[in-house]
């Protein structure tokens, strides 16, 4: 990944009367990133995205996109951004293809019907191109949202909850599409999502925000991948094994006993040594599994 900054936010602050939505947020998205944007409901994710898209005006802070201050040249910057904000909303009484035509007018681009159909085909909606959007399911609207967000071939794509409302096949297709847009079309992508597994599997960098402030930001693998794993170990004598591990000199950061399962916090590299230690100490190890790393990390910090 390049170190060239695509989005650089410093000291962003936004309040709605007494409610502080974003509180001195710093954030860096680099060119080529698939950037996970995580946080609980009401943490300020959507407000930050809306600020990036000029839908909401910040009280203070600096927002640079493509190395330009957003408030200096918003039209030029927005012409290079595609987005879905919250659930995609369309003009319900007109067809999908007509919606794309209407929305493309706001982007100042002109495309033929065939080109619009190409985008609908990309998201699997070509058969329903001429149906009124009011007949669409929420998953189909989500896919239409993707089509409208990429039809002007943006450099930065902002997807707010892109997996919401999708069935398992839809989630898989969306994941594939996001990866393809990132690798083949060179799009930098910001994804806000509650589906932590998805973020863990596709994002290379991420930020977790809580109450409007950044809790952590960095490479996904560095943050959650290898340093603080929670490992579940099933053994024949869990209480004895717990005592043994607790008094051992193994590189573990913590151990607890939950029911008949040992929970050990350690680095990825320590797992084989723990297994070997338990085996040599005479315990029968029935299973070792890693708990969902990002989920644990997220729950710890939010």
């Amino acid at each position: 990944m390049s170190s060239e900054s695509i989005v650089k936010i410093r000291g962003l602050f936004k309040n709605f009367d007494d409610l502080i939505a974003v509180n001195n947020l710093d954030m860096d998205v680099r060119k080529g990133d698939i950037y996970g944007f995580l946080g609980p409901n009401g943490s300020g994710k959507s407000t930050t995205i809306k600020v990036l898209l000029t839908l909401v005006k910040p009280e203070r802070g600096s927002i640079k996109v493509f190395d330009e201050e957003l408030n200096q040249n918003p039209k030029k910057i927005l012409s290079r951004i595609g987005a879905i904000v919250e659930k995609p909303s369309f003009y319900e009484r007109i067809s999908a293809i007509k919606n794309l035509e209407v929305l493309s007018a706001y982007s100042g681009i002109k495309k033929t019907k065939e080109e619009f159909l190409k985008f609908l085909k990309l998201v699997g909606l070509e058969d329903r191109a001429h149906s009124q959007v009011k007949t669409y399911s929420s998953g189909m609207k989500q896919r239409l949202g993707i089509a409208q967000s990429i039809m002007h071939q943006p450099d930065l794509l902002i997807l707010d909850e892109p997996f919401a409302g999708l069935d398992p096949q839809g989630v898989r297709d969306m994941r594939k599409l996001i990866k393809a847009l990132n690798s083949e079309k060179d799009m930098t992508i910001i994804i806000s999502s509650h589906q932590l597994d998805e973020i863990e599997s596709i994002a290379n960098r991420m930020i977790i925000i809580n109450r409007g402030s950044a809790v952590c930001e960095g490479n996904v693998s560095e943050i959650v991948g290898r340093k603080n794993l929670t490992v579940r170990i099933e053994v024949d004598l869990p209480e004895d094994a717990y005592k043994k591990l607790k008094s051992s000199r193994l590189p573990i950061k913590g151990v607890s006993l939950e029911g008949n399962v040992l929970k050990v916090i350690c680095a990825h590299e320590a797992i084989p040594f723990i297994n070997q230690y338990l085996h040599l100490s005479g315990f029968l190890v029935f299973g070792i599994s890693k708990e969902k790393a990002l989920e644990n990390y997220y729950l710890t910090y939010t």
Partner: peptide, 14 residues
């Protein structure tokens, strides 16, 4: 009300 402004106003239009 319908939320379409979220899409329209995030386009490069004044």
């Amino acid at each position: 009300e319908s939320g379409t402004f979220r899409m329209v106003l995030s386009r490069p239009v004044s």
